[in-house]
């Protein structure tokens, strides 16, 4: 199976000079197509930083970070933007646009790409929402939905563009136990169907069983792989 994320000897620090604070130390990790990898570890160990580098949201300078065959180390913004369009993001907060309906929010992912008509975008967004069990909430705005429903809308938004990778940072942190577990199992089921790789950061030990592999990060170093 092909590799979608390939990280070798990644080092990353915040600050410069005497204030340099190393956050990631010699990280090597690769993730194959359709694989679900969870990253756990204590707070401040560098999990979020790692995710933002993989997501092309933060520039790293040392080592090698290949995402979908594009090298991110010392790359241009252009390269990262085009890769970003092929990644689905799920945030700790749902981060939906509050002035848009669920359907319009999901459509935002599709409005970046060419070739779809308005009707096709609507249909695909509606399908995605039906898949996460929100077929009857298409025209609701975020203010009218519960926390669990909002996170399911953002799962639909991440998946509708058929990305090769989904990056999620503590997606269950703002949900209760029940809806948190439901959300990630739903994510797992849909990702497996479409062979999407998932890199998910979590504190939440109750959801570890959805993973194919669990990576533990401590002080910027991978403990077990």
């Amino acid at each position: 199976m092909s590799t979608v994320i390939d990280v070798e000897h990644l080092n990353f620090s915040f600050g410069s000079g005497a204030l340099t604070q190393p956050v990631l130390k010699d990280i090597t990790l690769s993730i194959r197509k359709g694989e679900i990898v969870l990253i756990t570890g204590p707070s401040g160990s560098g999990k979020t930083t790692f995710l933002t580098i993989i997501g092309g949201l933060r520039q790293a300078f040392h080592g090698s970070v290949k995402v979908l065959d594009q090298q991110f180390i010392n790359s241009s913004e252009q390269v990262k933007v085009s890769v970003r369009q092929q990644i689905g993001y799920i945030f700790q907060q749902h981060n939906l646009l509050k002035s848009l309906t669920a359907l319009q929010n999901v459509s935002m992912t599709l409005e970046m790409s060419n070739g779809l008509t308005e009707q096709q975008r609507r249909d695909r967004s509606a399908e995605a929402l039906i898949a996460v069990g929100l077929g009857d909430r298409l025209d609701y705005k975020p203010g009218q939905l519960s926390g669990g429903q909002l996170q399911r809308v953002s799962i639909a938004r991440a998946l509708v563009g058929q990305p090769k990778i989904i990056l999620a940072d503590e997606p269950t942190a703002s949900l209760d136990k029940q809806s948190g577990y439901e959300a990630v199992s739903l994510l797992k089921r849909l990702a497996k169907e479409s062979q999407t790789a998932i890199l998910l950061v979590t504190h939440d030990y109750r959801i570890l069983d959805i993973a194919d592999r669990v990576v533990e990060l401590e002080d910027g170093v991978i403990k077990s792989a």
Binding site: S82, Y89, F91, L97, M108, M112
Partner: peptide
């Protein structure tokens, strides 16, 4: 007020 929304869209690949 829309800073977070815009940042989210930027993450998704909006320029």
């Amino acid at each position: 007020n829309h800073r977070n929304e815009f940042a989210t869209l930027k993450a998704m690949g909006y320029e």
